[in-house]
Design a protein around this nucleic acid. Structure first.
Length: 423
RNA sequence: GGAGAGGUGGCUGAGUGGUCGAAAGCAGCGGUUUGCUAAACCGUCGUACUGGCCUAAACCGGUACCGUGGGUUCAAAUCCCACCCUCUCCGCCA
């Protein structure tokens, strides 16, 4: 959500920037609704002001034991008119608010202008994809043959786009979670939190998933709760309606959670294997930063995520998303893409974004420094998506005999050097 | 799920119909004093929307906000109803 005063006075410039990310803002409609709303607000407030004056006088007169029946009748009639005006204001307010909250964030000036994914710009490449001297298999074949990944039974127990991990497959997933959390908390300075996996609608509004993207979520019937699509939601909203001490920033939190996504509209994409699931595990990094430090913090956060891949020896590249490919709330996003032999290409494994004050305004998260209180900046990024890291390890470390070598740093966590077929 | 108590500014906490955007204290900010620190003293100190104002800041007004939403009343932090949340006890449970 944008600052109303800023947005109003920079409307044309904002509209041009929004157009670059594919959002057509009807400037005239915005202006006329804004004007109409303000006129109604002013009218109602003026009437309320005179009612307040009248009311105060009635109070004084009654203390002097003066009869005020007639005045009271007059004010009652004013109240009726105010009631009608308030209805109108409320209606216009809701319309205006719906419009304003539906406008995406404005891209930062450093973001490349483009129409789509094709216009993303590579900013970093690490590692060299391995040359296989045998036909490399995709993870769904390896997983099935090793008996560590069971999609058939997951479909029986739940449905499509769910997975059951067995034995060393389950251990590998758990090892990755612990490894990532340990690196981030012990070496990158993040504080671990374990939040609820369900969140309410106010939290989803705060980070920007609601009201626009409801169809992407699993809702719990008969409640205001939803399954969290990412830990970004519960963790960012930890400080909703709070004011943090500016000196304590940046606050750096990391959290492991499962993530639940309906994946509406993604039919036919990534249907094989576990690249795209209704439930996947993720370790998330979240930062609360002062405005002037947030872009530095984005670089550091991205580096923290990349570090996990480097320690695991997984080749990756990092791209900065073009204006046309960015998420709703983001001002700038880096995607980290890991090399997957099964896809013969790079696949997104982390998305690191600076939201500037866009979420903070929605969630009312402030920072105070002395007398000055301002909206802080929020950031987050995957550190990393665990399921896709699992895929990357199985595919990149596969051997000719179908076994998978466990990367050195993970061996203490997995309790094995090689993943061999389940007995 | 049942019974009781409670939800007031950044924090603690007073306030049971009008003089309450709200006492007091703490924290913050500005100042006096001071070799420095501390203390003391004085002052200041909520947010959003909106008008003055073409735009922005400052300033001066207005409106709204005392968990949320309704209601009663000329007038609601205060009275009534519903809901949410917290605490205590009981039940149930990992």
């Amino acid at each position: 959500m944008h600052d109303l005063g800023w947005f109003r006075s920079n409307l044309d410039a904002a509209a041009a920037k929004l157009a670059s990310r594919g959002f057509a803002l009807d400037v005239n409609a915005f202006r006329s609704l804004d004007t109409e709303r303000r006129a109604a607000v002013t009218e109602a407030e003026q009437l309320k002001a005179s009612r307040n004056t009248e009311t105060a006088e009635i109070g004084k007169l009654r203390q002097q034991k003066v009869d005020t029946t007639e005045r009271q009748q007059k004010v009652r009639e004013m109240g009726e008119r105010i009631g009608a005006l308030d209805e109108k204001v409320k209606e216009l307010d809701e319309k205006f608010r719906a419009q304003l909250t539906g406008i995406p964030n404005v891209p930062h000036e450093s973001v490349p202008v483009g129409k789509s994914e094709a216009d993303n710009v590579e900013v970093r490449r690490w590692g060299t994809p391995r040359e296989f001297d045998f036909p490399a298999k995709p993870h769904w074949d390896l997983g099935a043959e090793l008996g560590i990944l069971d999609l058939e039974r997951a479909a029986k127990v739940t449905g499509a786009r769910f997975a059951v991990y067995w034995d060393l497959g389950a251990k590998l997933e758990r090892a990755l979670i612990n490894f990532m959390l340990d690196v981030h908390t012990r070496e990158h300075g993040y504080t671990e939190v374990l939040p609820p996996f369900m969140i309410n609608s106010a939290s989803l509004f705060g980070t920007g998933q609601l009201p626009k993207f409801k169809e992407d979520l699993f809702a719990i019937e008969g409640t205001d709760y939803f399954l969290a699509p990412t830990a970004e939601v519960p963790v960012t909203n930890l400080y909703r309606d709070e004011t943090l001490d500016s000196d304590s920033l940046p606050v750096k939190l990391c959290a492991y959670t499962p993530c639940f996504r309906s994946e509406a509209g993604s039919y036919g994409r990534d249907v094989r294997g576990i690249i795209r699931q209704h439930q996947f595990q993720k370790v998330e990094l979240v930062k609360f930063a002062r405005p002037e430090q947030s872009f530095d913090e984005l670089e550091k956060l991205t580096a923290d995520a990349q570090d996990i891949l480097e320690r695991l020896g997984l080749p990756y590249r990092t791209v900065v998303l073009s204006t046309g490919d960015m998420g709703f709330s983001s001002a700038k996003t880096y995607d980290i893409e890991v090399w997957l032999p099964g896809q013969n290409g790079y696949k997104e494994i982390s998305s690191c974004s600076n939201f500037e004050a866009f979420q903070a305004r929605r969630a009312n998260i402030r920072a105070r420094s002395g007398k000055k209180s301002e909206y802080l900046h929020t950031l987050n990024g995957s550190g990393l998506a665990v399921g896709r890291t699992w895929v990357a390890i199985v595919e990149n470390y596969q051997q000719k005999d179908g076994t998978v070598v466990v990367p050195e740093v993970l061996r203490p966590y997995v309790g094995a050097d090689v993943i061999t077929p389940r007995k």
